[in-house]
Design a protein around this nucleic acid. Structure first.
Lengths: 248, 248
DNA sequence: CGGAGGGTTGAGATTCATCAACGCGTGTGG
DNA sequence: CCACACGCGTTGATGAATCTCAACCCTCCG
């Protein structure tokens, strides 16, 4: 006997890190309390200042978490694709949510209620560890964002973003598709769409061409310019002397 | 029978959140495996790219975590005072450390080795929860930094920083002392020392005067200009109509 | 006394955001 | 089927804001 949440989960292609290594019983427990929701594009799932309801697991579509101020400015903190989660950290901050969550397209999400999460954390060390790892990864990402805005030029920021996408996609492919609208990526990287566009042109001379939404690289080392010490560690070409890489 | 770590801990004035609500046994277990270290000013405890050794609990002094690039630029991610911890998140990221840790003054620290932490996390749900809360708080802070650099002016960034210090200090005091050198704070806020200095002058017109290292406010609402929705929730004056606060 | 480091101030250069216009593809309603 | 509006991305001109460089003052300390 499966409920809606279990069914949705079974049909999900990628395994969310949130559920890594969980026992059947634990997984069933989580899913049985969860709710599947569908949302149109540009829907607000959470408003900055709201009391968080639970963890949001994105089943399909794209969404962003962002902070906004009174006069309409917004800073995108994260952009999620299917399989990603958000609001885990917020649950453990206490207090209202410091971010809004908004869909970037039609979305299907799984909502795991706060109480279920908090109960499970206390019972299941593995679940607890998964959340800890996820939050840590988010934090690491945030550190990269901070440092990028301090000490990197727009070109470098985009380059580093491309590098991570390239590594995610599987490093052997010489092209990949931007998972979000350029606008959103630009904001995420702390610049205007105009600056983003102009920076892309500059990158042609580095062997990186943008053709609409697909980014094409001249060779596998084109992005090595943008590597840094802790990213190099996860790079499969790590040990090779990678052409332009300043680390070699 | 107490080891050095236990003794140090006993003499510590503030209770680190890391140890909140732990059983005697658990605490003893942690401390018995930990090491007390002393470091001079400007010492590198961890280099970006190093394999993390364990959690660092600052017993006395000040230190920073930062990311640096090849050409000497650095972005300060956090600045710690006595009782703060760092490297918890890094342990659970996997891979080398994305940040360096460097002392800002003579420091005494407690190092809790990686293995001890990881073992304890699996055994003690409360310890696990403490770490999760700490990392979540760091993450929240990081989100504030990101959004500040996107959409806030230098004056606003400093104002928000002062506001948090003011709330930490106890909101009833109309002055407080900067816990770090202005240089460091400036970098932490993503600006140069010059810009920091100039911004301070602008703030005089808002009733905020800087006299060396001490910041003096004309009235208790001077900093309300810089409040935002999720900070207001922890503000003790939250319910009052606070003069200049744009939220009221 | 002299040097070093931190902080402030000023002038100039650079960079990025802003504003405005345009091209293009898409969807929609007449 | 066409006209039109709309969203997205691009390009250009302009201006403001911040960084950079340089000089200076101050305190602290040998």
């Amino acid at each position: 006997m499966m409920n809606a949440a279990s069914k949705e989960f079974a049909s999900l292609s990628c395994k969310p890190q949130l559920f890594d290594g969980l026992s059947e019983a634990c997984l069933k427990q989580l899913l049985s309390h969860s709710i599947v929701q569908e949302h149109p594009s540009a829907a607000m799932l959470v408003q900055q200042g709201d009391i968080p309801q639970g963890i949001v697991l994105l089943l399909a579509g794209a969404l962003k978490t962002a902070r906004m101020n009174e006069d309409g400015g917004e800073a995108i903190i994260r952009m999620l694709e299917a399989g990603d989660t958000c609001m885990e950290a917020v649950l453990f901050m206490g207090g209202p949510s410091p971010v809004s969550v908004q869909t970037l397209s039609k979305c299907k999400v799984l909502l795991i209620p706060e109480q279920t999460v908090k109960n499970t954390v206390l019972q299941d060390a593995r679940f607890s560890l998964n959340i800890l790892r996820i939050v840590s990864r988010h934090y690491k990402n945030a550190m990269h964002q901070i440092d990028a805005m301090h000490i990197k030029s727009p070109v470098q920021r985009i380059g580093y973003y491309f590098l991570t996408k390239h590594l995610e996609a599987g490093h052997d492919d010489l092209e990949f598709t931007l998972p979000f609208k350029k606008q959103a990526i630009a904001n995420y990287l702390g610049m205007t769409p105009e600056t983003f566009s102009r920076a892309l042109k500059q990158m042609k001379s580095l062997g990186i061409r943008a053709d609409g939404d697909v980014i094409k690289m001249k060779d596998a080392f084109a992005l090595c310019h943008f590597c840094d010490a802790d990213t190099a560690a996860v790079c499969p070409k790590h040990d090779d002397p990678c052409g332009g890489c300043p680390l070699h």
